[in-house]
């Protein structure tokens, strides 16, 4: 079994100790990523998407963070590795692309140096060979005349190019798993499409698993095969991408989908809004976490929290009333 699953996250729980007491930013998150597959993680700001990815890489402050559960990467629990073993994984087998290309590159070093560094670090190549690899990686990401660009500093190139450099760094050691934390948020739409295509092509070429973290459902539709929807630190729905768009089960997912403007819709109508705000992690609602904002909520929802249930083999949902919602959907 585990050989087919590149990454298996089981009941991951990440707790920060803060001045106001412990808060659980990621609560009981479970999902898998297969080789060659793109898994989308979507949700509003503050729902725990980024903390999930940083927990997988164990990048959070070691002293104030507690991890529970397991993160099995190729059968090995990353949460139990020591720092040195973890460093060997990071950037080598699991890499990450950060959100903001403007601040994710060191301004005082050339981009060639920064790509070559990770190659030298993990593959023990000589400097010259590493630079040649760096140049190849830049060419692969579609940067014109990489042999010149390689000696330039980050301030000398544009945002889209910097994002390509970040991708080149992340892919330099041919990782098995790529975590892309909103890789296109800071870019304009044309560059976005190019970058997504690029990630997709490279995934095909290297057969790597990708976790695409985003709040943009358009990105999900374009590149992902499976989607995990998160709300307030929990997975509330997991499904194949087609089913998520054609038959969303959780009221929150439905709300999210309805809030996308339609090209052919009635333009005079206002966009759908999910009422209320995401509650603070200090005062997580009792019962279902979405209940205070949910139009389907009843007594049960407010008092007891639902579990993530298998609806069918491709879809899981954390809601007491998903069957009712499904029926209502069918009847209209």
């Amino acid at each position: 079994m585990s050989s087919t699953h590149l990454l298996e996250v089981n009941n991951l729980k990440t707790t920060f100790s803060t001045e106001k007491g412990p808060i659980t930013a990621v609560d009981d998150v479970t999902f898998i990523v297969k080789a060659g597959e793109v898994l989308g993680i979507v949700g509003e700001s503050g729902c725990g998407k980024s903390v999930t990815s940083e927990s997988i890489m164990r990048l959070l402050n070691e002293r104030s963070t507690k991890y529970e559960g397991e993160v099995l990467f190729e059968g090995e629990n990353l949460l139990h590795l020591d720092n040195k073993e973890m460093r060997n994984i990071r950037g080598n087998k699991v890499s990450m692309i950060f959100q903001d290309p403007m601040t994710s590159l060191n301004p005082s070093q050339t981009i060639g140096h920064q790509i070559a560094e990770v190659i030298i670090l993990h593959q023990k190549l000589k400097r010259k060979e590493a630079y040649k690899r760096a140049e190849e990686m830049l060419r692969l990401t579609g940067i014109p005349s990489p042999e010149k660009r390689i000696h330039e500093y980050p301030h000398e190139i544009s945002g889209g190019m910097r994002q390509r450099v970040l991708i080149a760094i992340a892919l330099a050691c041919k990782p098995n798993l790529l975590i892309a934390d909103e890789p296109t948020t800071a870019l304009d739409v044309t560059i976005q499409a190019q970058i997504l295509d690029l990630i997709n092509d490279l995934r095909d070429e290297m057969n790597m698993g990708v976790i695409m973290i985003t709040h943009d459902l358009g990105v999900v539709a374009e590149v992902c095969q499976r989607v995990v929807v998160m709300y307030l630190g929990q997975v509330i729905e997991e499904s194949d991408v087609e089913e998520l768009f054609s038959r969303p089960l959780h009221p929150y997912t439905r709300g999210l989908l309805q809030s996308i403007p339609q090209l052919d819709g009635d333009r005079s109508q206002k966009l759908h809004v999910i009422e209320g705000i995401v509650p603070s992690l200090y005062e997580v609602p009792k019962g279902c976490r979405f209940a205070p904002r949910c139009s389907f909520a009843d007594e049960l929802c407010l008092s007891e929290s639902p579990t993530l249930e298998n609806v069918n083999k491709n879809q899981k949902v954390r809601c007491w009333h998903y069957e009712k919602i499904m029926q209502k959907e069918l009847s209209c």
Binding site: L59, I89, G91, N92, S95, F98, T103, V118, H122, I169
Partner: peptide
């Protein structure tokens, strides 16, 4: 961020 990115690269 680039320091965090360096950590993420091991």
């Amino acid at each position: 961020t680039y320091i965090e990115a360096m950590k993420a690269q091991g």
